[in-house]
């Protein structure tokens, strides 16, 4: 199992566990982490699982690719930063054990 911590916009931390191969979106949804809706089912089509990767983890997770669907969708999301990603596009692997993700105040 891999540990992921979601930090809400008011600073509340919530650590959950997820199996290798699932994504950070599933980690949030299976554990009812508020603020992550994931409407489309995890296929990079709606931008309702927007997270900001903690700066310490961004290199391991990888930055947003400048072209592609994920960037196309995130350009319309509220409150994006250089650390923004869609949680459905972050597959969990052992090197991400302990990952910290920040949930933006608004998801849409």
């Amino acid at each position: 199992m891999i540990n992921v911590t979601f930090v809400s916009s008011d600073g509340e931390r919530r650590q959950v566990q997820i199996e290798e191969g699932e994504t950070a979106r599933e980690a949030a949804l299976y554990n009812d982490v508020p603020g992550i809706d994931g409407d489309c089912g995890g296929v990079c089509a709606c931008a309702t699982c927007h997270v900001q990767v903690d700066p310490e983890w961004i290199d391991k997770v990888g930055r947003l690719m400048s072209d592609g669907m994920e960037a196309d969708l995130l350009q319309f999301a509220e409150g994006t930063t250089e650390y923004s990603r869609l949680a459905c596009q972050i597959p969990m692997k052992p090197m991400l054990d302990g990952l910290v993700l920040h949930v933006p105040e608004q998801q849409y």
Binding site: D37, D39, C40, G41, A45, C46, A47, T48, M69, D72, L73, F76, Y108
Partner: peptide
């Protein structure tokens, strides 16, 4: 369980802007 998993708002870059 997942009531928002529907197509009424569309998906992708043209997804309904006023959905919420």
């Amino acid at each position: 369980k997942n009531p928002r998993h529907h197509l009424s708002f569309g998906y992708g870059i043209h997804r309904c802007m006023g959905n919420r």
